[in-house]
């Protein structure tokens, strides 16, 4: 999944050949580790089949170049603006935001605000549940929900920091 959007992000900036995509993807995915080349080529084939990406031909060293189609750009923007559900991992949003920054996405603010709304919804729902568990003396579930809330607090703090630095 992230390989697909990683490729769309990189092609948004400029055309690339396959090996360049691999190197750039490794750094975009960060700690998530290295991508194997086979995965990149099968993903590229699928992107071409779905008309999100096309190939304008070979470069001077006979390597196949890839470029982003308008349809691919729409797909990328749609994905960037879709908040990550609270049960997803934090890495998912970090990756998405990293893609947004990489292409200087002009709707970054909107993206952050939508993610914040998603988190706030989670905070209020989980806090409500937490208060019920507290009154029912359900210690274990109370502590589990508290743990989830601490994660949401960290996420919210981070978004606030990004927003403050955007001002």
């Amino acid at each position: 999944m992230s390989v697909k959007y990683g490729i769309l992000t990189l092609l948004f900036r400029q055309t690339h050949h396959g090996y360049e995509l691999k190197l750039e993807l490794d750094s975009l995915l960060g700690i998530k580790g290295k991508v194997n080349p086979g995965q990149i080529y099968t993903t590229l084939d699928r992107l071409i089949r779905d008309e999100l990406v096309s190939s304008p031909g070979l470069d001077d060293q006979e390597r196949k170049r890839y470029e982003l189609n308008p349809k691919g750009k729409d797909e990328l923007v749609g994905w960037l603006l879709e908040p990550i559900p609270n049960h997803g991992t934090k890495d998912d949003f970090f990756f998405k935001w990293n893609c947004a920054r990489t292409i200087h996405f002009e709707q970054e603010k909107k993206m952050l605000e939508q993610q914040k709304a998603m988190i706030i919804e989670g905070v209020l729902e989980l806090t409500k549940l937490k208060t019920e568990l507290l009154l029912q003396n359900q210690e274990k579930r109370y502590l589990l929900i508290s743990g989830m809330l601490f994660h949401l607090e960290a996420d919210l703090n981070w978004i606030n920091q990004v927003e403050n630095r955007l001002r």
């Binding site: 605000e113 939508q114 914040k116 709304a117 998603m118 706030i120 919804e121 209020l124």
Partner: peptide
């Protein structure tokens, strides 16, 4: 839409 409103 309370969460969106609160976020803004």
């Amino acid at each position: 839409d309370y969460a969106k409103y609160l976020a803004s």
